[in-house]
Write a protein that binds this DNA or RNA. Structure first.
Lengths: 200, 200
DNA sequence: CGGCCCGCATGACAGATGTCATCGATTCCC
DNA sequence: GGGAATCGATGACATCTGTCATGCGGGCCG
């Protein structure tokens, strides 16, 4: 019997996934959580064999919870996400996640994936993995990404500069470089693009 | 026995919801679809008693499918959405949707809601309904919304003007008005805000 | 009819933004 | 130590953007 922790901020989805997994005789959900902080707490209390986490989960994201659960309990983590892009996959694997499942995956496959991961192997969505190998990596530097992340909310440059502790002129330089690399006309278009690619 | 159509573009969610609903003895899923066009086709073929549709579903959105299914089959539609804001609720109700369920709803409630709607009554998430009554309506005009929708992708003003067939100066005027109403510093912040509120 | 409001457009102007050349400080490597 | 590379910053300049005042035409209502 594989004991699972299930975390997703959307109650309907969390409950539906629980119902789906309850159909499997060898799986049992021993804990649920609606945010990443609770997820870690419940994991420490229930000591599940494996954790299934939604990536899009406040506060921050599920990746932090995944890292923490892995370091504190040493159990494998399966990450479920709607935003399945190569860059996201890279970050997830870097964080030591054992399973990477887009929400477009057929529901019937989830149980097998969980068993695969529980047995010590890894599972990565083949389509995303293929893209990750063929697609170019993100051409942006860390600073450029950091700045674009702030820009995404629509903030004017002065605010961005304050947020990242840089001079406004410097921010404009970084944005100029990022826009050139991305072929974007405005910093907002660049931020939009970077987000769609999963870079920020 | 209530015969259901289930449409959601995310296979994992669709399958999980099917598993959840299959637990109820009086509910049966007779058709599934992964996009709004297929949803209408399947509905016409299977003639379900009720349709459960995800709002965020390509192409366009689930609202179009909801309207079409209602007009062609006359059956009640339950709309499930992640983006539950008062403005979205208003649009859904205007389209004749009988049930409005945020994805944060506890999973256990979905079956009751479906029964309620099937019996001819309506169900609207109480929290969203309360906000819809107390919150101010959208202060933006149709043109302002149309323009903000184009702006959201990060396009420069010239492109926006071309997209909506207006002079660039006029676009700036509309944006200026919208930004004033929304208290935003830039058109991008305004577009971001309008989207968060579900206005575009 | 005449006034009035509204949608659309224009022009002018200040301030924000994108581009570019350059410079100081730090680090790394030979 | 010298030199190259990198990061952060500055200043100048052309453009783009946001604001405001204004004008034109078409409905609407008294």
């Amino acid at each position: 019997m594989i004991r699972l922790l299930l975390a997703d901020d959307e109650g309907l989805i969390r409950g539906a996934l629980a119902a789906l997994l309850a159909l499997e005789p060898d799986l049992t959900v021993v804990g649920e959580a609606a945010d990443s902080v609770t997820a870690v707490q419940v994991a420490l209390r229930e000591r599940p064999d494996l954790a299934v986490l939604d990536l899009e989960m406040p506060p921050g994201d599920g990746l932090r919870a995944a890292t923490e659960i892995r370091s504190k309990l040493g159990i494998p983590v399966v990450l479920v996400t709607r935003h399945a892009r190569p860059a996201v996959l890279r970050r997830a694997l870097a964080a030591g996640v054992a399973g990477f499942v887009p929400k477009t995956t057929p529901a019937a496959r989830l149980a097998e994936i969980i068993r695969t991961v529980h047995s010590g192997r890894r599972y990565v969505d083949p389509e995303i993995a293929a893209s990750a190998l063929t697609e170019d990596a993100c051409p942006l530097t860390d600073r450029e990404l950091e700045i674009l992340a702030v820009v995404r909310g629509g903030a004017p440059i002065a605010e961005v500069a304050a947020a990242v502790h840089l001079a406004p002129g410097t921010v404009r330089n970084y944005l100029s470089a990022a826009m050139a690399k991305l072929g974007a006309d405005t910093r907002h278009a660049a931020a939009h693009h970077a987000w769609q690619q999963g870079w920020i």
